Simulated assay, not measured.
Amino acid sequence: MSAPDRRALLDRDNDDLSIRKQCKLLSVARSGVYRAPRPTDDDDLALMRSIDELFMAWPFLGWRRMGRCCAPTAGG
């Protein structure tokens, strides 16, 4: 069962089990329960897509080398 499915099983109105105990029993992080996920910005999606394309082109590069050779230059 995926984490979102387990998170959906939480009962916030349960007086017998606290949210903390329910999260522990369901193996769900409490931070994902209390905070709603932020909507993804279009700029963030474009950046993630370009990083993915770079990684698919050069999968042997680590994050340090990819950051040095593929990062856009400042001001241009």
Rank of each mutant, 00 (worst) to 15 (best):
P59E: 06
L10I: 12
R7W: 03
L26I: 06
V33Q: 02
R30M: 06
P4Q: 06
P72G: 10
A3C: 11
A8P: 05
I19R: 00
D15L: 12
G75H: 11
S50M: 13
T73M: 12
M66P: 06
A36L: 07
L26C: 05
P39G: 03
C69G: 10
N14E: 06
M56N: 14
F60S: 08
L17D: 02
E53V: 13
M66C: 04
K21I: 05
D41R: 01
R35D: 03
M56T: 11
D43A: 12
K21L: 10
A57H: 06
K21T: 04
T73V: 12
M56H: 14
R35M: 12
C69Q: 15
T40K: 07
R12D: 01
L17M: 04
F60L: 10
R38N: 05
R38V: 03
V33F: 01
G32Y: 01
C23A: 06
G76M: 11
R12K: 08
D52C: 14
I51S: 09
A46N: 02
R20C: 01
R68N: 15
L54A: 14
R6Y: 08
A3P: 09
L47F: 09
F60K: 12
R49W: 08
G62P: 09
A71F: 13
G75Q: 09
D42E: 01
M66Q: 09
A46L: 05
L47I: 14
L10W: 01
E53F: 12
Q22C: 02
D15R: 10
A36R: 13
L26A: 03
L47Y: 04
D15G: 06
K24H: 08
A3R: 02
G76Q: 15
A8D: 04
D44Q: 06
D11G: 07
L9K: 13
D52S: 13
A3S: 13
I51W: 08
R6K: 11
F60V: 04
G76N: 14
V33I: 10
D5H: 14
D44G: 00
L45D: 04
F55G: 03
R68H: 15
L45M: 14
C23W: 01
W58R: 14
P39S: 07
D41H: 03
G62N: 14
A29F: 00
R20A: 08
A3D: 10
